[in-house]
């Protein structure tokens, strides 16, 4: 298939960028979106041009490194899919595809489609941990956890920290990410000692990084490749209210 791409090119953080058009022929519909970009980059290198920089790592949908805004949708048009798992058969011959980096003040562009997501690391440092020594894997029944809680914690723990929630949010908010961490750790007995300091610390780090507030539009959950729902934001709000009331 033949495609015309418009890709955001920006040499470095301080130079203004722009959308640049590329025509690409003979794209296999079995190629993943990133493989299609690899093919384009091979050509650009052969022509002596600078290849398009983009983040990628595992290419099996579990690491959270890939991060492309494809035609105005985080990770592209297919639901519950990361960019690396999106295949070209989802597109038609002759399509024009816009590829942009995540847009958020807290995620500055480093180069082309690569953004700096260390703001998420700072949120994790501010509370996304437990202090209980865990050692080797305990027996499954050593600490009883209700099945419902275990399932909900496991679903929240599916968050890969890709940042699609921030990219899709009309307010550039990181609350789905933060909610996933608060739900994942707060539902388990090992997460209880830091439950109050966790939520206050994470919210402070989130705001300090320059993420916006949540308006409950649900764009984040619709974009999340791991289908994390708005219930985690509800839990985040609830934990925050209790912790803030206790701190006051």
């Amino acid at each position: 298939m033949k495609l015309s791409l418009r890709i955001w090119r920006q040499p470095d953080a301080d130079t203004p960028g722009k959308m640049v058009s590329y025509e690409i022929d003979d794209v296999s519909e079995d190629a993943s979106f990133l493989e299609m970009l690899d093919v384009l980059n091979e050509r650009l290198i052969a022509e002596g041009e600078d290849p398009v920089a983009f983040d990628h790592d595992c290419r099996e949908g579990i690491c959270g490194a890939c991060s492309l805004m494809i035609d105005g949708q985080a990770h592209g048009p297919q639901a519950a899919t990361t960019t690396c798992q999106l295949h070209m058969r989802k597109f038609k011959d002759g399509d024009q595809i816009d590829v942009e980096p995540w847009r958020a003040g807290a995620f500055p562009v480093i180069k082309d489609l690569v953004v700096d997501r260390t703001a998420f690391d700072r949120i994790i440092q501010a509370g996304g941990y437990i202090s209980a020594p865990t050692g080797t894997a305990p027996d499954a029944h050593a600490v009883p956890v209700p099945k419902q809680d275990a399932d909900a914690a496991f679903s929240a723990a599916a968050c890969i920290g890709c940042g699609a929630c921030v990219a899709a949010c009309p307010n550039g908010s990181g609350m789905l990410f933060m909610g996933a961490k608060v739900a994942h750790l707060g539902l388990m007995p090992q997460g209880q000692p830091e439950r109050h300091t966790r939520v206050l610390g994470m919210v402070a780090a989130h705001d300090e990084a320059g993420f916006g507030g949540c308006t409950n539009t649900g764009e984040c959950a619709a974009a999340c490749p791991k289908e994390i729902g708005l219930d985690v934001i509800g839990r985040l709000n609830r934990d925050f209210r209790k912790a803030a009331a206790r701190a006051a």
Binding site: G72, D98, E100, R103, P170, T217, G218, C220, A221, A222
Partner: peptide, 15 residues
């Protein structure tokens, strides 16, 4: 929090 707007935008699809 969103200093640069997206060039390509799709209608909202959240709940």
């Amino acid at each position: 929090a969103r200093p640069v707007r997206y060039a390509s935008r799709k209608p909202a699809r959240g709940e």
